[in-house]
Simulated assay, not measured.
Amino acid sequence: MNIDPHQFPLVWMHYREAAGQTDPFSQLDQLLQRQQPFVLVTADAPGEQAQPDDNAKASLKQASLWMKQNKAAIRRWIKAGIVIAPDSAAQARVEAFADTYRKFWGYPLLHCASKEAAMAMVGRLLGHGRINSQNW
């Protein structure tokens, strides 16, 4: 997982591995320490990741432990996760996974069809229409 906070409070999340990436949990810690609401956005729809192997299972366990240690801050500062799902099959996968996701992480998993729709949704979730100087 790779986290790009450069457009905070819109935070891009990519599930594909990237060379030289920083530990995602330390990145999330830094975001939570800002004590400001933000939204996670990804174009990686549920079901597109590789099948679980031993590394994936260890990552899931690490995520679970991290989530339990940070539950209150997560629920307070992360307003939603948004998946850009351009087709009905991807949207159906998000909807099928959304309730489980919310129960585990404590914030909703939403979807929209385009990057532009995601930017508008972020603005609504955070209570303002302008996210950054590019009006995202």
Rank of each mutant, 00 (worst) to 15 (best):
F8E: 02
Q21P: 00
A58Q: 01
P108K: 02
W66R: 05
S133W: 13
H14G: 03
L31V: 05
V94H: 11
R34C: 12
Q21R: 11
A18V: 01
E48P: 06
E95R: 15
P108A: 03
G106M: 07
A45H: 12
A96V: 10
W105V: 01
D23M: 07
H6Y: 09
L125I: 10
Y107G: 02
Q62I: 04
E48Q: 14
S26C: 08
H128C: 08
C112E: 05
S64V: 05
D87Q: 07
K103E: 05
A96Q: 15
E17Q: 06
Y15R: 09
S88G: 13
K68Q: 15
R102W: 11
L31D: 03
K68E: 15
V11N: 00
L125T: 03
V41Q: 00
N135Q: 14
Q27S: 12
R102E: 15
M13S: 01
E116G: 10
D4P: 03
L125V: 07
Q51T: 10
H6G: 05
M121F: 08
D99N: 12
N70C: 07
R75I: 03
Y15Q: 09
Y15V: 11
N2E: 10
G20K: 03
Y101E: 09
S114I: 08
L32I: 12
T42F: 03
A96D: 14
A45K: 14
S133Q: 15
Q33N: 14
A63E: 11
A80T: 09
Y101C: 12
Y101T: 11
W77K: 08
V41A: 00
L125A: 02
N70T: 09
K79Y: 05
D99S: 15
A85S: 04
L125R: 06
Q62C: 05
N70Q: 06
Q49I: 14
A43I: 12
T100H: 11
M67H: 15
I82H: 01
P9C: 03
Q35H: 14
H111T: 07
K71Q: 10
A43T: 13
K71P: 00
L110I: 07
M1R: 07
A18D: 00
V11W: 00
T100K: 15
L31Q: 05
L10C: 04
A113I: 09
R34W: 07
K61W: 01
Q51D: 12
L109M: 06
R34M: 12
N2H: 12
E48F: 11
A56S: 10
Q36H: 06
R102D: 13
D53P: 08
A98I: 08
Q91S: 15
Q36V: 03
L32Q: 08
P46C: 07
T100L: 13
A45P: 15
P86C: 02
Q27K: 13
